[in-house]
Design a binder for these strands. Structure first.
Lengths: 140, 140
DNA sequence: GTACATGCAAAAGTTTTGCAGACAT
DNA sequence: ATGTCTGCAAAACTTTTGCATGTAC
């Protein structure tokens, strides 16, 4: 439950702490990986009046502050999740749509090679791997 | 330039071979990884009357036929590329937006481990890795 | 009090759907 | 001839923008 001190980070930039910003950040932590739409719904359960526009603007801000990131999991809308804490990548099954997480260690060798060969710094929290999951693979 | 016989695949399903379908598939091969919008522009250069709707419908069909796949490279629109031939993954720089390709061999160990540990069959042609490229990393 | 944030409404952009006419077979 | 495809128009979504009001500081 480390909140990485939103108030301080905001203050350091001369920005303001608002209920909306706290709620959106909380929702991102609660939901794990969620679309703007889903976050909107979640926030609304606590504060009914919050506008979807604010969700988008706040997510952009939080991402800029380094508190959240987003990934494109197959479909149209991106999903947001907290940064830091649990760095992890996503495994997305194209058949059943299931999303599972994998530990960063699995990607470490790859990240190392990319850095060495290309100078490319892999953002592990941003990785989405597509394919067929065990269940769907067997059935076929 | 192996065309993987579009006519035959269509016929086998009782579907029809049209100029539009040939043009869209050709464009996907030519452009490498392109958004529906970009494909539309490319196709229009040859056949001006083709509608964007047809691009979407055709891409869906071609994907269903296993001739093309799509990947989500950062922004809103997905990009489509041919299946088979040159299996490759994408490296996307979040700072400058540059997209480069990496050879499938780099991903082979990872693919192997995922298959072994999770029974997950990684679709290499679908992989998009985000991070910071060499140029942007140095500058900072 | 002042500048930043939010809500609202509208715009912009993307993807989907319905339907009548065109066309491959 | 017949059933599939396409183009057109409109609808459904998602995301962005402008502006007046509200509010943290």
């Amino acid at each position: 439950m480390s909140e990485t001190s939103l108030p301080e980070i905001l203050r350091a930039r001369g920005l303001r702490l608002t209920a909306q910003r706290q709620l959106v950040l909380e929702a991102v932590h609660e939901l794990g990986h969620a679309t703007p739409e889903q976050l909107h719904t979640a926030v609304r359960e606590v504060a009914a009046g919050v506008n979807i526009t604010t969700i988008y603007r706040t997510l952009e801000l939080l991402e800029d502050l380094g508190l959240v990131t987003h990934t494109h999991l197959s479909h149209g809308s991106p999903t947001y999740h907290p940064v830091g804490e649990d760095q992890h990548a996503h495994l997305v099954c194209r058949d059943c749509g299931a999303v599972s997480e994998i530990e960063p260690e699995v990607l470490a060798p790859l990240a190392g090679e990319l850095a060495k060969e290309r100078g490319f710094r892999l953002d592990i929290g941003h990785v989405a791997l597509f394919g067929t999951c065990g269940d769907c693979g067997e059935t076929k």
